[in-house]
Computed example of a mutant assay.
Amino acid sequence: MRTALVIGTGLIGTSVAMALAQRGVVVHLADHDPEQARTAAALGAGTDEAPEGVVDLAVVAAPPAHVAGVLGDAMRRGVAYGYLDVASVKGGPRRELEALGADLSRYLGTHPMAGREKSGPLAASAELFEGRPWVLTPTRDTDTEVLNLALELVSHCRAVPVVMDADAHDRAVALVSHMPHLVSSLVAARLEHAEESAVRLSGGGIRDVTRIAASDPRMWIDILSANPGPVAELLSDVAADLDETVRALRALESGDDEKRRTGAAGIEDVLRRGNAGQIRVPGKHGSAPRVYEVVGVLIDDQPGQLARIFADAGRAGVNVEDVRIEHATGQQAGLVQLMVEPKAAPLLSAALRERGWGVRQ
C-alpha cells in the first residue's frame, strides 16, 4: 500500500490516517466538514488535498447510516482500487451497497474494536488500535487483493485481524458493546437528579459501570439506529432478568420466611450467573482470565508518585499485571491497587514497605 484516501476525519478515521502516515503511506483526507479534515492534516494524519489519481485503498469512516452512500459515491467516482469501511455495524451497509448495484468484489466491511469516550480528530491517536481486535467480514465475492490491502491496513495499525460473518458480527457487538452502552447510560441517568450527598459517595464501582456513558449521544444514535434489532432482543432479556430481580428483592422485604428464602435464592441466582459470565471476558492480551492478588499502596497526589511505585516494583522483580487508582474524597490522596500474580504479592508488599510505602494487602 502506497497511497490511501480516508473519508471521514473523526476519531477513528484520523487515527487510521495517523497510523498509515507513520508507516510511510501517502494519506489523503476528506470530510464533509473541510475544517475537520484540515485539523486532521495539521495533526500529521496526511494531506487534505485531493489525490491526483486512483489510490490503493479508500477507508470510509462515516456513521453507519451514511456508510453505503459515501462508499457508493466513492466507488462511482473510481477513487481507489479497494474500498473498506470501519463502521461498527456490518450487515446493513453491505446490503445497502448491494441494492445500489455496487461492485462488492472491491469492497470489504471492517470494524476496529477500539475507541474512546471522546470524539473528533483532536482525540485521535496512531496507537488507538494497537493490540485490539479488528474484524474483517469478507465474502466469496471479495477480491483477494482487496482482502490483502485490508490485512496490510490492520498490520500498519498494529491490530489483530479477526474474520467473521457480517451478521454474526452485528449480533456480537450488540452483546459486548451496544447493549452494555445503553445499560451504562441507564445507570448513569439515575445520578442526574440524585442528592449531592449520595453522589459524593461514588467509588470505583459506579465509575466502572458508568464510564462509557460519557460518550457522544449523537454518535450512539447513529450506531444504535443501524443495529436496533439485536440490541432490542438483548435488552428484552435484560428487562426480564430485572423484573425477576425486583420480585426477588420485594420478597426479601416480606415478613414471610419462605418468601425471603425464595427472594434470596433469586438474588443468588443472578449474582452467580453474573460471576459465570464475567469470567468469560478475555484477560490480558486476550488470554484466559486470571485471578490476581491486589496490593494497595497509599499515595499523595504529587508528581512522580506512580513512577516511583512502578520503579520500586521493577527493582523487586515483580511484573504489575494491571493497576487501578481509587481517589480519596476531598483529599489529595488515593489508593493505587496493583494487580500481580498471587505468589508475587508477598514479595511486592515487603519490598514496597522497605522503601517506605504504606501498603494495604
Rank of each mutant, 00 (worst) to 15 (best):
D141M: 04
E127I: 15
E117N: 10
K118T: 11
S125A: 10
P133W: 04
D141C: 06
M113H: 00
L128Q: 01
T142E: 15
D141I: 03
P133L: 02
T137M: 05
T144Q: 10
P112R: 03
A126M: 03
R132F: 00
F129E: 01
A124V: 13
T144G: 14
G120P: 01
F129G: 12
L108F: 04
S119E: 07
V146M: 11
G109N: 07
T142C: 09
M113G: 06
G131L: 02
S119F: 05
T144K: 08
A124R: 14
V146S: 09
G115H: 10
A102N: 14
K118E: 12
L122I: 03
K118C: 04
P138G: 03
R140W: 05
E117G: 00
G115M: 06
F129D: 07
L104T: 15
E117L: 09
Y107K: 12
P121A: 02
L122H: 11
H111K: 05
V146D: 10
R116T: 06
T144D: 13
L136R: 00
R140V: 13
L147I: 04
V146H: 08
G115I: 05
V135K: 01
W134P: 01
A102M: 14
L122E: 08
L136C: 06
E145F: 00
A102W: 09
G131Q: 03
D103C: 11
T142F: 06
Y107W: 12
P133K: 06
